[in-house]
Design a binder for these strands. Structure first.
Ligand code: FES
Ligand code: FES
Lengths: 145, 145
DNA sequence: TTTAATTAAGACAAAATGGTCTGATTTAAG
DNA sequence: CTTAAATCAGACCATTTTGTCTTAATTAAA
């Protein structure tokens, strides 16, 4: 699998927020946990990271929960992934060398940089808005991992 | 990182075999372990898997070691990876759903299947021969992880 | 036939990842 | 002010991955 569980849980949680009707304010983590079948306390920790990174806002207490920090059009998928997996997640060498380096390439370097560029472009273009839109209008799946 | 350590160690070990002069027969695992800085016993276990899968041949005893089971032109990178990571490693859903399914796609499905196809094509085309060739003629790196 | 060099096997340990639990803190509302 | 509902904090546990160690089996060559 390409992404860690933490990252997948994070992505699916923000997607869940993205498909909520705009009038909804704070969504309890318990609800997300139940609807997406993600362990509650685990999810809480993951979402705290997203809050620290400024992707979501959280509010304690009754009527509390979490909420997207920006409009879905400004929430980028690549950025969310990198905030969980690490900044240079998409820049590594496919053969695992410490740095993917034009000046010291591995045997798959040329081919891999081309594909990496496409992946980065793809994820860099995708915002929560487009994903949430597709989920809502085409009924794409969000449940079951 | 995309591939597990086990997979990276396996790939680098067979690459090491691939760049050996053709007259060399069995190469001791200890040599590979030292040259590539891979833990010996760990590497032994990984290579046993490759031997069981028919990619390499091993011989015990003095003057023993391992050897590619076929000409480098017949050893495919994708197959080696799949033998370590699992057959369906390159067919999963990017959002971690249980199956990447045209009939029940996720919000990134269309874009991801396109990129997956490129990755599979790329790795399916690459044989040990081409990689070993590049390493030898262009001095590409094989050391340091 | 002995010895040295090698892989094979499997128990074990360490580290990373994934997950659980309890209690403290905060907040809205009765 | 009290209570209920929520996040926050951190210790803890479980599983998977990675790595270590010891011993057995095998083989070529002295
Ligand atoms: S150095 Fe390996 S992919 Fe660039
Ligand atoms: S269903 Fe998610 S990538 Fe195909």
């Amino acid at each position: 699998m390409i992404f860690s569980k933490r990252c997948l849980h994070a992505l699916r949680a923000v997607l869940y927020l993205g498909v909520q009707p705009p009038e909804r304010e704070f969504v309890p983590i318990r609800e997300i946990s139940q609807k997406l079948d993600i362990p509650f306390h685990f999810l809480t920790k993951i979402l705290k990271e997203l809050a620290d990174q400024g992707f979501i806002i959280s509010s304690r207490g009754a009527a509390g929960g979490i909420q997207l920090a920006k409009p879905t059009s400004e929430l980028n998928v690549k950025e969310i992934i990198e905030s969980i997996e690490g900044e240079d997640y998409f820049s590594g060498c496919i053969l695992g060398f410490s740095k993917c380096d034009n000046d010291n390439p591995c045997a798959l370097h040329d081919r891999w940089v081309a594909i990496k560029a496409e992946i980065q472009m793809m994820l860099g273009e995708e915002h929560l808005e487009s994903l949430a839109d597709r989920i809502k209008t085409q009924g794409l799946r969000l449940l079951e991992i």
